[in-house]
Amino acid sequence: MISLLLVILGLTLIAIGVFFDFVGALGLLRLPNFYTRLHAATAGAIGGAVVPMLGASLLALGAEYLGPQRFFLAGAAFASSILLMILAQAGSHALARATYISQGAPLEPIEYDALRERGRGGS
């Protein structure tokens, strides 16, 4: 019973990840400038990799036919998802900040530039 619940939950999370990956790919192709595309790529990394990896860990926990191996799979997937959650956003932040400071990409279309008032790229 509990393993069926785990499998259903894991598959749901993986489906959510597929949705995020699709949205991320669409945004990468269709959004207008570097920063918004980076936003789409990060949505693909967090929603499309962290969430499905959590789902894979739950799925592995629920798959009893894998035997004791499933705990290794679940642990590895869980640890990688947490690490990726910490690191993917830091990478995107560093990219965006460096691009803003070095003016490596056009800002248009832009509504409001809060960082310009703070002098340099914020912290």
């Binding site: 690490l83 910490i86 690191l87 956003q89 830091a90 560093a94």
Partner: peptide, 16 residues
């Protein structure tokens, strides 16, 4: 160096 966000994430990563 880079910003505080990146530094904090790297601090998590160093021992690993």
């Amino acid at each position: 160096g880079l910003s505080e966000i990146v530094k904090t994430s790297t601090r998590v990563l160093i021992p690993l």
